[in-house]
Amino acid sequence: MSAVKIENISKSFDTVLALAQVSFDVLKGELFGLIGPDGAGKTTMFKILTTLLMPDQGKAYVEGFHTVKDYKKIRRIIGYMPGKFSLYQDLTVEENLNFFATIFNTSIKENYHLIADIYGQLEPFKKRRAGNLSGGMKQKLALSCALIHEPKVLFLDEPTTGVDAVSRAEFWEMLGRLKAKGITIVVSTPYMDEASLCERIALIQTGKILSIDTPEHITNAYHKPLYAVRSDDFFRLMKELRGQHFAERVEPFGEYLHLTTKDQITEHEIHQYIQSQGHSTIELSAIEATIEDVFLDLMQAN
């Protein structure tokens, strides 16, 4: 049985279609990623799954419970961390955790084993008010509060947005450890580089699912020739390549341009073309596609 089952969910806000006929399953104990840019419909999906919103059409189940009819049962077994920090800023770290524990009729002591390695880092600051914590610490506290009642499914809406790179890496390590404890985790992120840390991902754009698979399968399914290229004059190179008939897509990826070409041109010919435009220190090499390449490609195809 799957932990989360979504069947043809649609949801509109006034005239804006936030989700269009979305269906997917999350398996038990899986670390599932919902990957897409801002406004793709990730938060709406989370609100439906956490029983905060009702879908216009379709059905969704969490651990076999219907999100509308059995919402009370679902609320006992899920942990939810909204995208916006929503703990009490005027309560201390300890008071927040204690409050959420008592709401679920449990105590910090009882489930300490679940949050030990997360809350452990916060304990020196347990008398500090939540509003005075740094972004990374706020996120750890929110995760602790979402975990304190030992949920079966954890919903994390953009947990790493606005958090520094080190804390982000740490956070994903924590998720890995939670998964090892058998908790199903559904996480959303706008960062494509985090996608490869999930077991399976769904790429979502303007309310539609573009692709669902393991990150490897998704990148392997990209068959178009792809090159990483750079030169001394990055922006001129980008402009010139975009004007060429052989270039299907040219996108900046950090220090390199990712150039997707149509079949008829070889690596050698590309190099010659760039040289002919007067560039120096040219680097050009064929590469494997990343999730982001696939995403941009699927986006264009839609």
Partner: peptide
């Protein structure tokens, strides 16, 4: 306004 009600709403309170 602060958003805490969202966190409260997903609890069995």
């Amino acid at each position: 306004e602060i958003g805490t009600i969202e966190q409260i709403n997903v609890t069995p309170i």
